[in-house]
C-alpha cells in the first residue's frame, strides 16, 4: 500500500471513529451516570458491597460495581418518585450467609422484582447484592440482558442457584414465576402455583428464607389480555396492558421474619420431597400472611 493511500485510509478512519476510539460512541460509565442522579450515601453502599471480582472488575456472571451503580440510577425515579416505595421490616434480612428472598409476583412487567432489588441495594442493614433470578427468555433480549446481568441478575438455572448460594449470596425468587406476573385482575393478591425449587435449594445450602410481600404491584399495570401465540424472545406470551405506562401506585414491601432452615433441617433433607414441600408450604404461608397484613395496613392504592 502506498503511503498516500495509507494516509487517506487513516484519515477516513479517524473521521469515522473520532480518533482511536470505537466506531460507535462509547456508552457512559455506569458510575458516571449514577453520580448525576443517585444520592451519595446510596452510591457509597455500592463500594461496600461484596463482589467476587475476577480481575477485570466483573464477577463470573458479569456483575460489576458500575452495573450496580447504573441499576441504582435506572431505578431511582421509579423507586423514590413514581412508586414511592415504602419498605417495612428489611431488618429481617440476614447480614451474612446465603439467603433466599421469596416474594409474590405480579404487575404484567417485572417491576416488582426491580423494586425489591432497588430496596435491598439501598436499605439492607449491611450492603448486600440482591441477585434477582430472571426467566430464561430475558437472557435472549438484547441490551436488557446486559443491563440486568451487570446489575446482578442471573438466569434461573439450578446450577446458578447452587453456585451463588455456595458463595453465601442473596437470591431473589418468585416461586409463582410467569403464572404470577401474568394473572388476571380477578386473581390479584391470590398466590398462584408455588414451586418448590427454592425450598430444596435453601435446604441443601442451609440458606435462610426471607418471605416478602409486594403490595401495590397488582394495580400498577392491569392487563387487558394477552397474545398467547406471540413468543417474542421465547417469552410465554405478550401481555396487553391497560395503560401505556405503569400507574404511579404506592408500592409497599413487607419483609417477614426469616425462616432459618438450617436450624431445623439438614442439607440431606433436600432429598426428602415431604420436607421440601413442608418448607415450601411454610414460605408460601408466610408470604400469604404478609400480603394480608400489607393489604390491611395500606390506606389506598395511590396513597
Amino acid at each position: 500500500m502506498t503511503d498516500a493511500r495509507a494516509s487517506l485510509l487513516s484519515r477516513v478512519r479517524r473521521r469515522l471513529t473520532g480518533g482511536a476510539g470505537p466506531w460507535l460512541p462509547k456508552l457512559p460509565d455506569g458510575r458516571a451516570v449514577a453520580r448525576w442522579v443517585v444520592p451519595v450515601d446510596e452510591l457509597a453502599r455500592v463500594d461496600a458491597m461484596p463482589l467476587r471480582d475476577l480481575g477485570h472488575g466483573y464477577d463470573a456472571y458479569g456483575m460489576s460495581r458500575g452495573g450496580l451503580a447504573f441499576g441504582l440510577a435506572l431505578s431511582h425515579v421509579l423507586y423514590h418518585h413514581w412508586f414511592r416505595v415504602s419498605s417495612h421490616g428489611i431488618g429481617h434480612l440476614p447480614t451474612t450467609g446465603p439467603v433466599v428472598v421469596v416474594a409474590n409476583h405480579s404487575g404484567t412487567l417485572p417491576l416488582d422484582g426491580l423494586m425489591i432489588c432497588a430496596d435491598i441495594l439501598r436499605r439492607s442493614p449491611v450492603p448486600r447484592v440482591p441477585r434477582a433470578v430472571v426467566d430464561y427468555f430475558v437472557g435472549r433480549m438484547p441490551v436488557v440482558n446486559t443491563v440486568f446481568t451487570r446489575a446482578g441478575a442471573i438466569g434461573g438455572s439450578r446450577a446458578n442457584f447452587h453456585d451463588l448460594l455456595d458463595h453465601g449470596e442473596v437470591i431473589v425468587v418468585f416461586p409463582e414465576g410467569t403464572a404470577g406476573i401474568g394473572k388476571g385482575w380477578d386473581k390479584r393478591y391470590e398466590l398462584q402455583r408455588w414451586t418448590h425449587g427454592h425450598a430444596e435449594l435453601a435446604l441443601r445450602h442451609g440458606a435462610t428464607i426471607v418471605p416478602l410481600a409486594v403490595i401495590g404491584a397488582e394495580e400498577q399495570l392491569p392487563q387487558l389480555g394477552r397474545l398467547a401465540w406471540l413468543h417474542a424472545f421465547g417469552a410465554p406470551f405478550l401481555p396487553i396492558p391497560a395503560s401505556p405506562l405503569p400507574l404511579p401506585v404506592h408500592l409497599h414491601l413487607w419483609y417477614g421474619p426469616p425462616i432459618r432452615v438450617a436450624e431445623r433441617w439438614s442439607p440431606d433433607d433436600a432429598h426428602d420431597p415431604e420436607v421440601v414441600a413442608q418448607v415450601a408450604a411454610q414460605s408460601r404461608a408466610a408470604v400469604h400472611q404478609l400480603i394480608h397484613q400489607g393489604l390491611r395496613a395500606r390506606t389506598g392504592v395511590f396513597a
Partner: peptide, 13 residues
C-alpha cells in the same frame, strides 16, 4: 451454552 443453562460451567454441565 444457552440461557437455560448455567452461566458458569461445571464439569457435569
Amino acid at each position: 451454552n444457552r440461557t437455560d443453562q448455567a452461566d458458569v460451567f461445571r464439569e457435569d454441565a
